[in-house]
Amino acid sequence: MTQPAKNPAENAVEIVEVGPRDGYQGIGPFIATERKIELLGRLVAAGLRRIEIGSFVSATALPQMRDTPDILAACKQFPDLEPQVLVPSERRGRDAVAAGARRLVFVLSVSEAHNRNNVRRAPEESADEYRRLLQAIPDDVAIRLDLATAFDCPFEGRIPEAKTLALLKRLVALKPDAEICLCDTTGRADPDHVGRLFSEAPSRFPEVKAWALHAHDTYGLGLANVHAAYREGVRIFDASFAGLGGCPFAPGATGNVATEDLVWMFERMGVATGVDLAALVSVARDGAALPGGLAGGRVRDALSAGSAACAVT
Rank of each mutant, 00 (worst) to 15 (best):
173 A>V: 12
54 G>L: 12
61 A>G: 06
133 L>C: 12
119 V>T: 12
278 A>E: 14
269 M>R: 13
231 R>E: 15
222 G>S: 08
303 L>D: 12
144 R>Q: 12
309 A>E: 10
298 R>H: 15
216 H>E: 00
281 V>W: 04
231 R>P: 03
58 S>L: 04
38 E>K: 11
62 L>S: 10
30 F>W: 14
242 A>G: 05
42 R>T: 11
8 P>A: 05
238 D>R: 01
181 C>T: 14
119 V>M: 01
248 P>K: 07
103 R>F: 12
38 E>F: 15
73 A>F: 10
189 A>C: 13
48 L>D: 03
254 T>P: 00
78 F>Q: 15
290 L>A: 05
247 C>M: 01
103 R>P: 01
235 R>E: 01
89 S>H: 13
33 T>A: 03
106 F>M: 11
90 E>W: 06
215 A>F: 07
74 A>I: 14
228 A>V: 03
219 Y>A: 15
55 S>H: 02
59 A>N: 09
52 E>V: 07
111 S>C: 03
128 D>L: 14
109 S>N: 07
97 V>W: 08
7 N>F: 03
205 F>E: 08
235 R>Q: 04
292 G>S: 08
47 G>S: 09
93 G>H: 03
165 L>M: 07
206 P>I: 08
221 L>H: 06
174 L>A: 14
99 A>P: 08
109 S>P: 07
263 V>E: 08
249 F>M: 04
158 R>S: 12
108 L>H: 07
211 W>I: 01
183 C>R: 06
246 G>K: 00
86 L>F: 06
165 L>W: 02
272 A>D: 09
5 A>K: 15
302 A>I: 08
270 G>C: 11
242 A>W: 01
236 I>S: 13
106 F>S: 11
133 L>S: 03
268 R>T: 07
85 V>Q: 02
200 E>Q: 10
230 Y>W: 11
156 E>Y: 00
134 L>W: 02
34 E>K: 07
207 E>V: 15
202 P>E: 07
171 L>D: 04
160 P>R: 02
234 V>A: 09
83 P>R: 05
153 C>K: 00
185 T>C: 01
51 I>W: 10
269 M>I: 06
295 A>W: 06
274 G>S: 15
152 D>E: 09
305 A>W: 15
109 S>K: 05
208 V>T: 10
79 P>E: 14
19 G>W: 03
286 D>R: 03
36 K>H: 08
171 L>H: 01
